[in-house]
Write a protein that binds this DNA or RNA. Structure first.
Lengths: 138, 138
DNA sequence: ATTTTAGTCTATCTTTTTTATAGGTTTTAT
DNA sequence: ATAAAACCTATAAAAAAGATAGACTAAAAT
């Protein structure tokens, strides 16, 4: 399951995307609008900023805004940033690989093979679907 | 990521499947063979037994054994039993559904749609692949 | 019958991760 | 100058994961 952090990030990004025309948006506005603890959200938006996904402006009239178009922000990027690995096993993760202790040879490990397929199927969607694809259809 | 519990369960099941001919297998043997804390493994095997996946025999010559053929044990079953939901969001889980707070209407929620697809792609593999498919190929 | 073997059950403990909060600092507009 | 708003770091609280302890029950061997 995705952590609350990642879920909140998605909701915040959706809100930002749906209000691009309004310029920088206050953390407090997003928090209120999406019922997220303002301080928790603050940390999340900071991480998104440090990753180059969001930009911000301080002082009066400040707030957060998207640094890229929704189409340019793959869902996998957000998940990896805030939740870490997408794969179900460390030995099958592309970005957070770790060798498995209990298995002698990955090449003949059946678990490895199946979980690689799961990862591929998941990534095919999450890498290709972007913020644009999760905006409310109206 | 799958929890250690689920990972250990897979390794234990693999060991049991690869040693069916030897009759009931000791918890201690599996623990030693797969480097798992014996007491932790004990709990896991019990859960698998209570779910009808394993059978057991007490006293001398006792141990654990599979109640079904490896082919009849889907990977999804094990994961759900020990880890809970396979879906990435509660509002998209088939077996552990929970309504999402932040979203007004699931029918038009884009996140819901994408995550449903991820769930389907994952389940297509995990429901159809069984213990048999993760045995070491030799 | 008694002893030994091995799983059963339930409770607790420890560690790690997740979720959340607090409070001061810096930047910018007016 | 002042107020607004993001920035930053640390910490706390809660929950989940991982692991352990020990008494109990059942089966088998003797």
């Amino acid at each position: 399951m995705l952590s609350k952090k990642t879920q909140y990030a998605f909701h915040a990004l959706i809100y930002l995307a749906e209000n691009v025309d309004k310029g920088p948006i206050l953390i407090s506005e997003i928090a209120a609008e999406k019922s997220i603890s303002i301080k928790f959200l603050e940390n999340i938006l900071l991480e998104l900023k440090n990753a180059g996904i969001l930009g911000s402006k301080k002082g009066k009239g400040g707030g957060y805004y998207l640094m890229r178009t929704p189409k340019e922000i793959p869902l996998a990027r957000i998940i990896r940033l805030l939740d870490g690995p997408i794969a179900l096993l460390p030995c099958v993760s592309l970005n957070y690989y770790e060798r498995c202790e209990n298995c002698k040879d990955e090449a003949i490990c059946g678990l490895h093979e199946v979980m690689s397929k799961v990862r591929d199927a998941t990534l095919k969607l999450l890498e290709n679907k972007s913020l644009k694809d999760i905006l409310t259809r109206d």
